[in-house]
């Protein structure tokens, strides 16, 4: 059952400001369907940079990225936005929700944007995801009024709403206390077991050990 969902070949990236800096050096990477991958490495080695490349948000690089048999390198802004909406789910270190909207509206938004289902069906799915995160009681609350741990769980529900091919997370617990960190880790393992493909950047050894594969980075290179 080895089907690659994501293939990155010889990724190179440079920063020109404040000085010329080769941040990613010939990075190649294959992710199989259903894999749960942790990226580790010292601060500043280029983990986040790599994740932004893989997530199609950053287009300023050399090399090719293929996701779900689509070569995303070189697609235009419109096509990439559509692609992200359909195929990629995000969870960030800073749990970014839209504070004016309710929890439920935040979760529903990517699906409304996709427009594949009617509102009632989207709402039902969003409620299911919230239930999975045990957040269903907060569905009607404004997202801005919740704690960091709660917000991160909602962000995960939102990342799942369009059944993406890959879920990417950049230090999803970086900003949380240990209790909340434990909850988020459990959720990630749960969704990994449900067959989702996950790439997460983390500094947490225990969390990384429980994943299928650990990718070590040093100074813009993958070392193992």
């Amino acid at each position: 059952m080895q089907t690659p969902v994501l293939e990155a070949v010889k990724l190179n990236k440079y920063f020109h400001e404040p000085q010329e800096f080769h941040v990613l050096n010939d990075v190649s990477l294959t992710v199989q369907k259903g894999e749960f991958i942790s990226i580790m490495g010292k601060s500043g080695c280029g983990k986040s940079t790599l994740l932004y490349l893989l997530s199609t948000l950053d287009t300023d690089y050399e090399g090719t990225i293929t996701i779900n048999n689509t070569v995303v390198s070189g697609l235009n802004e419109r096509a990439l936005a559509r692609f992200r909406n359909r195929h990629i789910g995000f969870v960030f270190q800073f749990h970014y929700l839209l504070p004016e909207f309710t929890v439920l509206q935040n979760v529903m938004m990517p699906a409304i944007k996709l427009g594949a289902l009617d509102t009632a069906a989207i709402e039902q799915q969003a409620m299911e995801k919230l239930q999975q995160m045990q957040m269903q009681d907060l569905a009607g609350k404004p997202a801005g009024k919740l704690s960091g741990g709660q917000q991160q769980r909602i962000a995960i529900a939102r990342a799942l709403i369009n059944k993406p091919d890959i879920i990417m997370a950049d230090e999803p617990t970086g900003n949380l206390d240990s209790a909340n960190t434990a909850i988020i880790f459990d959720i990630f393992h749960e969704i990994a077991q449900q067959g989702n493909t996950i790439i997460t950047v983390t500094h947490d050894e225990d969390f990384a050990r429980r994943s299928d594969r650990i990718i070590q980075m040093v100074d813009g290179k993958i070392t193992g």
């Binding site: 997530s55 802004e77 419109r78 692609f83 990517p110 939102r158």
Partner: peptide, 16 residues
């Protein structure tokens, strides 16, 4: 700015 970034990450285009 944050909201704009998150919307774009979710698949909103510049035109949106």
């Amino acid at each position: 700015l944050k909201d704009i970034a998150i919307l774009k990450a979710q698949g909103f285009t510049g035109a949106d």
